[in-house]
């Protein structure tokens, strides 16, 4: 049996008539960077709140470190660090003083505050009021709070929300370093496929409260692969000219080449032109998260 840091069983949360989280079976293994991917409102934050024992599941179970939550919340939460949604901070206190409050509760030495401050590069601004921080600094303060207790798993809910590109880059590097250098498991949620793609080792895709996909990032990457789109004058003739290339006629009369290998596109174009088909436009299309969702959802419906 694998070492699951997070495991949920048929986790469900119902608000009114709507299952915001629907029969979720989440599995996060030790050492993973688990990307929890879903559009806004898909149920990510609700799930994370249930993991943290902040809200109670309508049905189903949560286990952290193989202990039930919220029943044994007090036993396991010392091993969990979290940044749930927007960072929480006391605006009237300095960054350091904010961390000191958490350090007092978790019984962590003062030295550790300096460490986390330097990890998130907030040492120089530690004396300023947290209320005066920029959004990126508040976010980093939130991550510092999550790391303060030297947790075994860090749960970060949309940690790059509202950050500028430099800030996003910084946080991404930080997250990537966690398992590699320190053996911390990371559960990070996002609504951006590209972001998850750049840091996660494993992915769970949630849509309308249902887990559509869960597995290694490579599997999802294969699905999200782009294609080359060609607009031609006679698509019905064109498909026959494609030879062995994976070409199909799209519904709008264009051609889709399911390969982004440069040579394939060149060969197809030359074959088409040689066959007397005019090529108006050739473009590479990346598949958006929405398209992958649509595919996953329609598969889910068909199955």
């Amino acid at each position: 049996m694998k070492d699951h840091v997070v495991a949920t069983t048929a986790l469900t949360k119902r608000y009114g008539n709507c299952n915001v989280v629907d029969e979720l079976d989440l599995r996060v293994e030790r050492g993973q960077i688990y990307g929890f991917l879903g559009l806004n409102g898909a149920g990510k934050t609700t799930t994370i709140r249930m993991l943290m024992g902040l809200i109670h599941p309508t049905s189903g179970f949560v286990r952290l470190f193989d202990r039930p939550v919220p029943a044994e919340r007090m036993k396991v939460m010392r091993r969990v660090g979290a940044l749930v949604e927007s960072p929480s901070y006391y605006a009237h206190l300095s960054g350091r003083e904010n961390l000191r409050i958490i350090a007092t509760i978790l019984d962590v030495p003062e030295k550790r505050i300096d460490e986390v401050l330097s990890i998130v590069r907030l040492s120089a601004d530690a004396g300023r009021k947290a209320g005066d921080y920029s959004l990126g600094m508040k976010q980093r303060l939130g991550i510092a709070s999550a790391l303060l207790g030297s947790p075994e798993i860090v749960v970060l809910d949309e940690p790059t929300n509202g950050l500028d590109p430099a800030g996003i880059h910084e946080i991404r590097d930080l997250i990537r370093a966690m398992p590699r250098e320190h053996g911390i498991t990371v559960l990070v949620s996002s609504h951006l496929l590209a972001e998850i793609d750049q840091m996660a080792t494993s992915v769970g895709v949630i849509h309308s409260g249902r887990l559509l996909f869960q597995g290694p990032i490579e599997d999802l990457r294969a699905r999200s692969q782009g294609h080359v789109r060609l607009e031609v004058d006679r698509p019905e003739v064109a498909v026959a000219l494609a030879g062995g290339l994976p070409v199909r006629a799209a519904t709008d009369g264009a051609l889709e080449l399911a390969s982004v290998v440069p040579g394939d596109a060149a060969r197809l174009v030359s074959a088409l032109v040689g066959g007397g088909v005019s090529v108006y436009r050739v473009e590479e299309r990346q598949r958006t998260l929405e398209e992958i969702f649509l595919e996953l959802t329609s598969e889910g419906a068909a199955a």
Binding site: M74, K75, R78, R79, I101, I102, T104, I105, L106, D107, V108, P109, R112, E115, S118, I119, L147, G149, S150, P151, A177, M178, E181, H182, G183, I184
Partner: peptide
């Protein structure tokens, strides 16, 4: 640096004491 506090210390004080809450 990310996980420098020894685990033994962490487990010894697994839950927040009342004193900690009062001080916080």
């Amino acid at each position: 640096r990310l996980a420098s506090a020894p685990r033994a210390v962490a487990s010894a004080s697994a839950r927040a004491s009342a004193i900690g809450l009062i001080a916080a």
